[in-house]
Design a protein around this nucleic acid. Sequence first.
RNA 1: GGCGCUAUCGUCUAACGGUUAGGACGGAGCCCUCUCAAGGCUUAAAUACGGGUUCGAUUCCCGUUAGCGCUACCA
Length: 494
Amino acid sequence: MLRVRFAPSPTGYLHIGSARTFIFNWLYARHNGGAMILRIDDTDLERNTEESLRSIFEGLQWLGLDWDEQYRQSDRLALHQKSANDILGKGLAYRDFTPLSAATDEVAHTGSAWLFNPGQREISKEESDRRAAAGEPFVVRFRVPRGTGEAVTFHDHVYGPQSKQADDIEDFALLRSTGAPTYHLASCADDADLRVTHIIRGQDHLTNTFKHVLIFKAAGVPTPEFAHLPLLVAPDGSKLSKRRHGPIVSVTTWRDGGFLPQAYINFLCLLGWSPKNDREQMSREELVQAFGFEGINRSNAIVNYTEEDPFDSKAVWLNAEHIRTMPPADLAAALTPIVEAAGFSTAKLPQITPLIQERIRLLRDVLTVADFFFVDELAPYDSAELIPKKGDAAMAARVLRQALETLATAEFTHDGLETALRAAAESLGIKAGQMFEPVRVAVCGRKTAPPLFGTLEVLGRETSLKRIEKALTIVARALLPAAPASADVTRNGY
RNA sequence: GGCGCUAUCGUCUAACGGUUAGGACGGAGCCCUCUCAAGGCUUAAAUACGGGUUCGAUUCCCGUUAGCGCUACCA
């Protein structure tokens, strides 16, 4: 049975890179009918926060991907300690009694790589046991084989065969002086105990894997398969961090920015993985179907963003593609919480949605693209906006008066409105566009808006007429001769 | 410093050792059109550098350069 795990440590919000690691693990599990394990790696008591834990679950919940089993490392300390003591008992690890301060000084002053503290490896079992029993503090270190010329090797499903001289690996810690396990030990002990068959994680763990292979061998358990993922980095190539790159590294920022989870997952998958057939927009099912280690890339991928454009343009495009191709009813449902949060009624959303579906790229765009459907009173706009191309204020006034008359009796359907308004334009002897433009501005408050007939239909006769009347008064004011008495008004008007 | 990994358009990427180096986003232009979108068409834009191996290297090998990672009693 294939088993994979995602093991975040609750020391921050859910990071975009972590989300992708989760997604790749999930895809691999689902593609192969395996089990997905969520393990909270909370062995660093000092840095763990409940807030962070909440944020991780919040992010995963939004992605909408499930898992089959869930564990918390802090519940499993006994297992970790037993594992470390087994290795110690076999003589494959040793106690290091070097005081913490002395050790750090050593590291700081040494120019070359630190490998182990002098003298500690040679302490006899008897002396070691005696000093430990006497209460002297120590850390348990792995006894990395030295001077034997042997290499630690493993095969990575993404990076291929990996090898490193044991002599280049330092005697890393297994247990701290508090008795708490280190990440390396806890991670391996749990992976073994949970029978994880494939470890899929960030490439930042590639060199740690040599240590892990050593631990698995020492523990006498089968070594899992490995697949390391290229990292997600900032445009300057540096690691994405909240401090340097801001909220863009947090999954919730994308959620709040108006991304569909499916589109976000789709985008993340395309960063460092390719289906190799030029497919871009893919559903969750298609991703599960297509996913495999063969498509994973080896070089880091940049998440493109700028101050002005916080979201990668490809992510935005992909989101728009998903929005355009989803059933309107689903889109309306996705839009509902956003419209509600803005304090508007969602009653007309089902009719509004088809009009904006191919015009919004992020869900929150509904608030800027369809605002005029929701408000009672249009925001003030410049009277000049009402003047049609190659026309003047007088033409605008004529158009609006005609529109008032036409719309008072026209059938309020898309086709009925189109016929009526086109006929109205003809009767005025102007181009259709010259007719539509003032009406559009009158009912939408701006020139850029969804198609006019559908818009009028959704707005309804009453609101449409009211807004056109209002526009007419605005034009009429602009048409007033510039009499001395109204000079001030005119000047202020502009 | 030591060790490890990586290197194709601005970005994401494709290319059994043989292609006019392909696609997508973004950019530019044109078409369609009631505005905006969407859609269609066109276009600019890349194999980091230097050596090999080979009839032939984006592809294999070596070196250089650059970037990233690890080098903690963090994960």
